[in-house]
Design a binder for these strands. Structure first.
Length: 489
RNA sequence: CGGGGAGUAGCUCAGCCCGGUAGAGCACACGCUUCGGGAGCGUGGGGUCGCAGGUUCAAAUCCUGUCUCCCCGACCA
């Protein structure tokens, strides 16, 4: 075997490993425009499965899809003070059109709050028109200085939900509900456990009153902000005059929320489950769940085996599981390629299960089932192979989540900790450090400056330590919150 | 924008110091033998050596300029 077929290992260089996996498993490629990314069919297939699952969850909670323009009048961006300040440096601006300079430049949306709430203002008159529960699937552009495939690209695909409510309580509840949906999706579908909670002021979305976040831990122990949900208060409704007549006959500004997840999730998936053999996909999101590799030596064997494999794939592909839909099975009948080469290729691409079918198997009315990441080969009867596959897929989905959760907990640190010990953890292995914080932004800034670690989140009760630190890690003052520190992507 | 690398075949790179017909491995195409963990042999296709100047009988190689990409920082889903 030549060395150039092998991947860089995660231990040797996590970043290099990540880039190699993304490129070689054909998820994405670099584009001619620096900072942009081409998503290839394999990567897009994963995104499509994510979209479908999320979309179902949004619909089930009363949301509807709509679409708003890519181009936004520049003046819209300046109407909300914090919003302008936050996004101005990363705006792409269109200054010419139709061969002429435009009277007012247009910005390419970095997010759509402004244009959406300007439209909401037209559509809402009475409290009876509320709530508006909208979502859009779209692309956005942010002029990032440094980019990484999927994790930070100038253009990315996402969904952004935007809602308007009659009361702040209802909006708060909505922001919380969507955070919960994100968490369910990340854990249930991606097998990626997250810590949920509230962002500190410095990490809050530009224009929000409160930002909730799902934070996941990658295999290099850095944090990934995987999804956010914002309570926008009345900041945008005041900027865009989004008013309604109340039940009592007065007028009031509406209360907004927005929430989004992006193609960054694909990067999170890679960095959560990938191994030194490449990608590992949770079955629920794998475009192909099972690949069938026929094995043969002579022509007559090939004919016999490939035909049997075709029948098997057709039978299993038609076989309706109770959940989640038809089995996504693929026959790799390419000739002139040895089975071993196919194994490596499908493992690199993260396909959860492989079914090997050879002459000896056919004679015994069986096939060999192998789980991604396991060298263990299990002979299964062709009569019940569908059940065996379904069972293995379900088990893998669970095992991936458990393994990721164990890994995260093994790299989480709790209790009263000294700032020196904290620095050592952050500089050495990294991880999530639950520590006391006096609530002072200056302390947060100091730690960021000195260690590059940031407060990822003020965790929700469920994630808080049984015995949280009572004193601020840096100043020793009484702690106002227990917070999660980590270096982040 | 600061610091560090690199531009030579589709990919990874050697050749450059010391100028003299453009190379290797992988990939690709064809043929034969192979096929239960990355096949072997043979044959073949593929390059204005990032770009522009200069020095020279002669430049991938030396000189000048310029562009691009990657990594580390400042910005962030």
């Amino acid at each position: 075997m030549s060395d150039d077929k092998k991947l860089t290992t995660r231990d040797a260089d996590f970043s290099a490993w990540y880039n190699e996996v993304v490129l070689r498993s054909e998820l994405a490629d670099y584009s001619p425009v620096r900072g942009c990314m081409v998503i290839r069919p394999h990567g897009y297939g994963i995104w499509e499965r994510m979209q479908r699952a999320l979309d179902d969850m949004f619909k089930a909670t009363g949301h509807q899809n709509a679409y708003f323009p890519l181009l936004i009048p520049q003046s819209f961006m300046t109407k909300e003070a914090e919003h302008v300040e936050g996004f101005a440096p990363e705006l792409a601006v269109v200054t010419h059109g139709g061969g002429k300079e435009l009277e007012e430049p247009l910005v390419i949306r970095p997010t759509s709050e402004t244009i959406i709430y300007s439209m909401f203002a037209k559509w809402v008159q009475s409290y009876r028109d509320l709530p508006l529960l909208y979502n859009q699937w779209a692309n956005v552009i942010r002029w990032e200085m440094r980019t990484r495939l999927f994790l930070r690209t100038m253009e990315f695909l996402w969904q952004e939900g935007h809602t308007a409510h009659a009361t702040h309580d209802e909006a708060k509840e909505e922001a919380r509900r969507m955070l919960g949906i994100y968490r369910d999706f990340m854990e249930g579908w991606m097998a990626m456990p997250v810590v949920t909670g509230v962002k500190t002021d410095s990490e809050r979305f530009a224009g929000a009153v409160k930002t909730y976040s799902c934070e996941a831990m990658m295999q290099d122990n850095r944090a990934l902000q995987a999804g956010t949900s914002h309570d926008l208060g009345q900041n945008f409704s005041k900027a865009f005059d989004l008013k309604f007549q109340t039940e009592e006959g007065g007028t009031a500004f509406a209360w907004n929320t927005s929430w989004g997840v992006s193609t960054r999730l694909i990067g999170g998936l890679v960095m959560t489950h990938g191994d030194d053999g490449g990608l590992v996909l949770p079955p629920l999101l794998a475009p192909i769940e099972v690949v069938v590799v026929p094995i043969y030596r002579k022509d007559d064997e090939r004919d016999r085996v490939v035909e049997a494999a075709r029948n098997l794939v057709q039978r299993l592909g038609d076989w309706e599981r109770r959940s989640p839909g038809r089995l996504r099975i693929h026959l790799d009948a390419r000739e002139g390629m040895k089975p071993g080469a196919k194994y490596y290729e499908w493992e690199l691409k993260g396909v959860p299960l492989r079914l090997e079918l050879g002459p000896r198997d056919l004679d015994a009315n069986q096939a060999v089932l192998v789980r991604r990441g396991s060298k263990q080969k299990v002979a299964v009867s062709l009569d019940s192979v569908g059940e065996d596959i379904a069972e293995a897929l379900a088990a893998m989905q669970q095992d991936l989540l458990s393994a990721a959760r164990e890994r995260r907990e093994a790299n989480s640190y709790r209790g009263q900790i000294s700032y020196d010990a904290f620095k050592e953890i952050i500089n050495d292995k990294g991880g999530f450090v639950y520590a006391g914080w006096n609530g002072d932004p200056a302390v947060e800034a100091q730690v960021k400056e000195e260690t590059k670690a940031t407060i990822r989140v003020i965790p929700d009760e469920e994630f808080r330590s049984a015995e949280p630190a009572t004193r601020c890690m840096v100043t020793g003052e009484r702690a106002k919150h227990e917070v999660v520190w980590a270096r982040a992507y």
